[in-house]
């Protein structure tokens, strides 16, 4: 099953992520986001972080989840290639994320992401699909 596809947007970049469940779509959105930043094939699973996010609704949860990962990339240079969502109820999410600290000599960095945005942000619980545009 395809995990995500990129959306073209004039100034920015976005993606639609899919899953067998909404939780998986959120995990795949994270995977897609880090794939925009770097070539994940060269990233190993040597570090992990457990992340908990609580928000008012499923849209804010997606925004906060992705921005939390961007924050971790910014302060710890962590590139995550796998996120296991262990708890998900549409307002809260707990995930353990696996990846590696970015090493510019080995990891091909494509582009930085400033933030996930609310623009066109969509969470579709029927289709287990999420859509997000990033400010790059």
């Amino acid at each position: 099953m395809r995990r995500y596809r990129l959306i073209e947007h004039t100034a920015d970049t976005g993606l639609v992520a899919y899953g067998k469940s909404l939780a998986e779509a959120y995990a795949n959105a994270a995977y897609g986001m880090f794939s925009i930043i770097a070539d994940l094939r060269r990233v190993s699973e040597v570090e992990s972080r457990t992340i908990e996010v609580n928000e008012r609704d499923k849209e804010s949860l997606l925004f906060a989840w992705l921005n939390h990962l961007i924050y971790l990339f910014d302060v710890e240079s962590l590139l995550f290639k796998r996120c296991d969502v262990t708890l998900f109820d549409g307002k809260s999410l707990v995930a353990t994320c696996y990846g590696e600290k970015c090493d510019p000599s080995r990891h091909h960095i494509r582009i930085g992401i400033k933030s996930a945005t609310y623009h066109m942000l969509t969470v579709d619980p029927e289709k287990n699909l999420v859509k997000v545009i990033f400010d790059v």
Partner: peptide, 17 residues
């Protein structure tokens, strides 16, 4: 840089709430 990006994201949440 990241400081401004975080301030923007933090306050979009504050305002939505």
């Amino acid at each position: 840089r990241g400081l401004g990006h975080q301030v923007a994201g933090d306050y979009i949440k504050v305002m939505l709430d």
